[in-house]
Design a protein around this nucleic acid. Structure first.
Lengths: 190, 190
DNA sequence: CATGCACCCATGTGATCACAAAATTCGCTC
DNA sequence: GAGCGAATTTTGTGATCACATGGGTGCATG
């Protein structure tokens, strides 16, 4: 999910088991679970690797993020009190630090933490789980994107999200979330 | 997914293995996968059972169905030619038969086949997979619903969906799908 | 030097086992 | 007869093994 593994990297049961000091069995179960969520692809022979997404698939997953996360943000809005907004702002500050440090993995993790913190307030666990499944599928690809894109600016749309939350402005919030979610992936496709 | 198992039914690895004539290992992997998709719940001790959904969860899953399936139908619309509509109509006729026979499992299966046939045209595999995940989570509960509800009428909203497809009318299609998806679950909650 | 083939090693699958923990059942006591 | 505790059975977990298969490497041949 955090882009620590590059797209197309192949994984073996015995290798994962050795990495974590366990036998094949727990590694198998973990891989089975991740495959079920679409985070790993299994070849016909049962070999697993992180997916290499084509542009169509990336656009589809971006559309899914947009659908799910706009709804989650919308549901979180009425419950978003000042304490939550403060936390979002502090997370956002750390996002800026990660960008300054050019640490792609930390940036992705913190960015997702920003989103998850907001969506937790939606009180919609199934919906949040689906959003996280999409994140999982995009993880390796996002790393490839943000590793390439060497930007310095702190995330613009995060500020818009926070502003819309403060104002209690649902249409603006929906637009800001959609923009934030789509923006990064749009340039990966382009 | 088809409601063959009642909500809250507990399953054991050895039992499933025996049912399918295999050892625990394949049963374990299947259960792990289904748990990852939310189709089964695991207790802290690792025991698995089909979920018993409360009203909040049902409403959330209905909202997810609405979000995903409206989008899928909308994407399928431009590609929906007459051959597809014919197939939908013939599936719909068999849905009516299943209702007449009071066969809940067959009805659920056929109803989902109707939806899947339409959504396949959307060419959005990740989105369809998420919709099917929601179906999986609702399976046992849907059975409990349709087993209770002893209705005789063929599905009204399916006709509206077909009519909207024929007319190429996207707003009507979106409304019809949302209604069809929400209708059944609304009375389960109520 | 390229290409095809054969061999070998790596890898996933299903089965079985030992073990620990939890649930159920049985019996005892009040 | 009801409640509680101990014993037994059930059940999930992790490990290990045999086996089949697919991939990769290296060698031989044109």
């Amino acid at each position: 999910m955090h882009g620590e593994i590059a797209p197309g990297q192949s994984l073996t049961l015995r290798g994962i088991g050795a990495d974590f000091g366990v036998s094949m069995t727990p590694a198998r179960e973990a891989i089975r679970r991740l495959s079920a969520e679409g985070a790993l692809t299994m070849s016909s022979s049962g070999r697993v690797s992180t997916p290499e997404l084509n542009n169509e698939r990336i656009e589809e997953l971006a559309a899914l993020r947009s659908l799910l996360e706009v709804e989650l943000a919308s549901r979180a809005l009425p419950r978003a009190h000042i304490a939550l907004i403060d936390r979002l702002q502090s997370i956002n500050a750390r996002v800026a630090e990660d960008i300054a440090r050019q640490d792609a993995v930390a940036y992705i993790r913190r960015n997702l933490e920003f989103h998850r913190t907001l969506y937790l307030r939606a009180q919609a666990p199934a919906m949040l789980a689906m959003a996280e499944t999409v994140w999982l599928q995009l993880g390796p690809t996002m790393r490839a994107l943000y590793g390439r894109l060497r930007r310095k600016d702190p995330p613009h749309f995060h500020r818009l999200i926070i502003a819309a939350l403060k104002a209690g402005d649902e249409p603006s919030l929906r637009l800001a979330v959609r923009s934030d979610v789509t923006q990064g992936l749009r340039m990966l496709v382009g």
